[in-house]
Simulated assay, not measured.
Amino acid sequence: MGLRMMRFIAPLLGCAALSVLAACPSLAQDKVKVRLAWVAGGVDAPIFMAASKGYFKDAGLDVDIVDGNGSTGTIQAIGSGDFDIGIAGLGALAQAQQGSGADTIIAVAGLLQKDPTAIISLKGSGITKPKDLEGKRLGTDAGNFEDGMIKAFAEANGVDMGKIEVVMINGGGDRVALLKRDVDFINGWANPDGDKVAAQAPIEPPMLFADYGVNILGSSVIVRKDYLSTHAETVKSFLVALQKGKAAAAADPDGALKVLMEARPDSDEEGIRGEIATMPKYEHTAASEGKAYGWIAKEDVDLTISLLEKYSGMKPGLTSDKIYDGSYLPAN
């Protein structure tokens, strides 16, 4: 009698246990709040692909992706604990840490390592090499000029800034001024800024600052150090899933575009398409070429720090190990 009862109860107990597990999948999921650097764009395709393909879920992560309004805002949001993982420029992180004296946030991967900032000029401008900038008119806004990188580009390439007429154009009107030929060149991102100009008039090949000795590391995965100390496996799992998302986006860019547009239906579809196509060429420097997605070379971190100290007024003393730790990435 007892044996027959057990044969009847045991399957029910098993089903009950399975039902509990099935009904409560969140028990196995580690909730992670992620804040992007800006409104979602092509650079973020690997994150959205990792979410869509279930790579985060497979890694035990329940990831919530929120748009940002700039690296500074994301750095502040991570620092305050409002988010667990953020995407922000590594150069911006360095400046923020040195400016505040805090040592609470670190980058664990670099998504855009070759700075897209470039000299953009119209076809026939006569600007094909750095020295050609002398005697020409630069259109820029105050913030873009004062960050010091155009000055760094000039000094690194023997260009006399005193021979360049600087025309301040606020409100993002530099592209319009260039198209109207009110200025001879602007400094912006080769993609998408250069693409937007090229859609209106032929341009010379943009001169990337990174190709001329001036490279500031860009979009990176950042976390608080205290979060990292208690959630090391979470961060590792996130990066593994992110690399899978990158591979999926590279294999199927149209699929990546579809995923992004489903997640952010108000986005500029053609703009996103262009970013997905062009951003991969900015993912590595010569020093990190051939390495896994996200891996940063120490020499590139050192260069970023030295450029910021020399041209952007960042106080000295920061070392690469204070702002980047690549040990959480999967082995190359």
Rank of each mutant, 00 (worst) to 15 (best):
G317A: 07
G70F: 02
I127Q: 03
M207T: 08
A50T: 09
D147M: 06
D84G: 03
Y311K: 03
I222Q: 11
M49T: 10
D195S: 02
M149E: 08
D325Y: 07
N215C: 00
S237T: 07
I305V: 03
P130E: 15
L242P: 11
D30N: 15
Q113R: 12
G172P: 02
I87A: 10
D300I: 07
Q113S: 12
A287K: 00
M279S: 04
K123D: 13
I276D: 06
G148K: 07
L239K: 09
R35K: 11
E262L: 01
M6H: 14
S267H: 07
A94V: 09
P202C: 04
A109Y: 14
P330G: 11
N157H: 04
A118W: 00
M161E: 11
K57F: 07
W295E: 08
N144Y: 08
T128I: 10
D226Q: 08
A45V: 04
E275G: 01
P253T: 04
A16W: 15
K258R: 13
K136S: 00
G91I: 08
Q243R: 10
L308V: 08
M314A: 07
V167I: 12
L217N: 08
P206R: 05
E146C: 03
Y227P: 01
K123H: 09
G139A: 02
V259P: 01
Y324K: 12
I150H: 00
W38Q: 15
A201K: 14
Q29L: 13
E165H: 11
G218L: 08
G313R: 06
S19L: 15
V183E: 04
G294K: 00
L329W: 06
I150C: 02
A118I: 00
L239G: 05
A107N: 11
V108T: 13
G139W: 02
T74L: 06
L208P: 02
F56H: 09
K136F: 03
L122H: 12
S80R: 15
D266N: 10
A297D: 12
M279L: 04
T230R: 10
T319R: 10
V183L: 00
K196G: 04
S26W: 15
I186M: 00
D30G: 09
H284N: 01
D132G: 03
Y55T: 11
I222C: 00
S220N: 06
A251F: 01
G245K: 08
L217F: 07
G126P: 10
